[in-house]
Write a protein that binds this DNA or RNA. Structure first.
Lengths: 386, 386
DNA sequence: CATGGATTCTTCCGCGACAAAAGTAAGTGG
DNA sequence: CCACTTACTTTTGTCGCGGAAGAATCCATG
């Protein structure tokens, strides 16, 4: 596997904005683009020409509604050639690596998962290289790899600290680049998910929005002006110091009634086990709660209330236009959705605009997809960022 | 009193950014400006010329440090002619109107206060016109008036709702313009203070910062990307639905342990009165608490803890670069500063960057100055905003 | 089936903003 | 007195955009 020409020609700012607009907002005619980007029709001819010649964009037949009869010269929608390049995204968890192949539009076209048996950096890199080879079958024009890791990542290349892997200053990007010959972007998994949502998901076109994840831990990502706000304690225990109920249940980590102890999957399972003596999976607990089993129902109700308070406070203080809920723990919303909404309402001003809360049913491949989006951003469009 | 030519010539975007930069960041040479605005030296000659000709900027002698011996041609700092125009700012409270005259640089050069005996809109407007005439003495080149009101203000002109004045849809801007012949900007008082801090105060040059005010109520202003984020419930009871301590003291408004009931001046006085049977002023309570009187000390300690939690949560969720504390209630910081800091630390992640908390000792004239800053923004530089 | 109107896109030209380079001004230091 | 440094000005070239005119391609109408 040899290195592929990483990125297209260097794009001018005008060309880049056109490329991103088409990539993110689907097929658009030149006239549409002129309106959206506030440019003249003439400028669009100029800007699109090199993009079409380079193969990034193509003219596509006009969208379906043939019934619609319009006068005038038909528009010539432009679209990115989604399949022209492929990207690989990985999500590394404690015991599994989830991998996907995506198109330029971040649609998942292939999946491949493997158990993670060793946490040794070079062995992990070996595994990622093997999985890359496996995934690459049938997708020859790989342009790059994105890797999402829970933990603190520096320079989009080095894992500065990852508690669950017991890593410190591991140059994962370099390790994988050496083995695959492909450009690699490493990023915190929540950050990657946030970027993916900003470009291709719920956050498209929004100025301020929040991604909140519930799973083994709690993740928080704040996007302002289209950019993610970096913060020092990134993904090293968000919500642990946020005490919702001082009299709440004590959890193994020694915090009483924190958002983490009330909301995360391991702590919910711990609470149910401590009360009933039996170990259940998270899904079982949700089912029991839905069926009215009193003890799980109490724990889940409390979790729903905590989530509502958390969401309300985020809305009060950060004032996002939308809050997106993701992660393996969002099943909570199905069972305790009403509790969450009530709690939100109770902790918001009656005149406040309603919170736009969107729940994304997501599995680990969505995290991997998020990592692939980073590769798209950095490698294709040359979006540099820290 | 006749209308004065309101604003300078329409400025181009380049000229405007130069003007704002000089206005906000004091005297700057062209070379400094070129560096700050990322422009070439040539562009600065071009951009500054019309500004100097129009009288907005002047070349001033180089700054003081004559001891400093440098080679080369001396720089020619530019400065705004601060005294070339004057602005009036008003802050309306329930029983007083506070007025100031400021320079273009928002320095207060005169004050004048009057008791507010009637809440009738036209009588209030009459009073403002009288005070304007009073303040205008000796400051002939008035360019505009800014008015800060607690409540909900629309279009920077109409008081949509103000509970303490019992106003609904009062076109205060128009009323005062009719009486004075001067352009008038009306804005929510917290919003005005936020703008003032963004331009001339602690928020200068920051991308994200928060203004938190404690007084008769709690005020919250969030600035992102140099712009204040508008929100629906603006200044109609921020913090009332934020329950810090579910077992906290009950207050007359029926909320138990909310940020408002724990922190605002009327509620602190109410708590002390309920416990001791005696009515004290806020300053007296602070003094008693500092002296160790147990009951006031407990109330103040609780208030300090509540403030700490509030600040910590703002820092956690909105991630501002700085939080500015203002209002008549900031004396709390002198007495309970340590409690506040402890509470902040307890509710933040240990790895989180420390909260940059700045306390501004402020009286009502600072609110009035904030309103004057709005007049400066809108009338001189044509900064349009909602 | 020709004509005209509508709409989209292309070509071309001019304008404005900017940067880079070259020139001028005003100081310091030997 | 001359070299050197720094600040500013002038000149010139380039880039990107908007606007006007025209080409392409549809529909509607007679």
């Amino acid at each position: 596997m040899t290195a592929v020409a990483a990125s297209w020609l260097p794009l001018s700012t005008g060309e880049r904005s056109v490329a991103i607009e088409v990539l993110v907002h689907g097929p658009l005619s030149r006239t549409d683009l002129a309106r959206r980007l506030d440019l003249s029709a003439g400028s669009l001819t100029r800007l699109t020409k090199p993009l079409i010649e380079s193969g990034l964009l193509v003219e596509v037949p006009e969208a379906g509604t043939s019934a619609e009869v319009r006068q005038g010269r038909p528009s010539q929608p432009l679209d990115v050639v989604a399949e022209s390049r492929s990207f690989i995204g990985f999500k590394i968890t404690e015991d599994m690596v989830y991998g996907v192949v995506t198109t330029l539009r971040s649609e998942i076209v292939a999946r491949h998962d493997r158990p993670l048996v060793s946490h040794d950096p070079s062995e992990v890199a070996d595994l990622l290289a093997e999985m890359t080879a496996e995934l690459a079958r049938g997708y020859p024009r790989l342009a790059g790899i994105g890797i999402g890791v829970g933990g603190f990542v520096q320079e989009r290349a080095v894992v500065g600290e990852s508690p669950f892997l017991h890593w410190r200053d591991v140059p994962l990007g370099e390790l994988v680049e050496d083995r695959t010959g492909l450009p690699v972007v490493v990023e915190n998994d929540v950050a990657a998910l946030v970027e993916a949502e900003t470009w291709f998901g719920a956050g498209r076109g929004l100025d301020r929005f929040v991604v909140l994840t519930i799973g083994a831990g709690i993740g928080y990502g704040l996007v302002l002006g289209g950019r993610r706000v970096p913060y020092a304690e990134e993904d090293r225990g968000f919500g642990r110091h946020w005490i919702i109920d001082p009299n709440g249940p004590l959890t193994p980590d020694g915090n009483r009634g924190s958002a983490v102890s009330l909301l995360t999957i391991p702590n919910i399972r711990y609470q149910v086990q401590a009360a009933t003596g039996r170990d259940h999976t998270y899904d079982e607990i949700l089912a029991l709660a839905a069926a009215g089993d009193s003890m799980p129902a109490r724990v889940i109700d409390e979790a729903g209330r905590a989530l509502g308070v958390l969401v309300a406070q985020i809305a009060n203080f950060a004032m996002p236009q939308k809050i997106m809920l993701a992660g393996e723990g969002v099943g909570l919303m199905d069972v305790a959705g009403k509790t969450v909404e009530d709690a939100i309402r109770a902790h918001r001003h009656p005149l406040a605009s309603p919170v736009d809360l969107e729940t994304r049913v997501s599995d680990f491949h969505d995290w991997a997809r998020g990592a692939a989006v980073l590769a798209i951003q950095v490698l294709v469009l040359g979006v540099a960022e820290v």
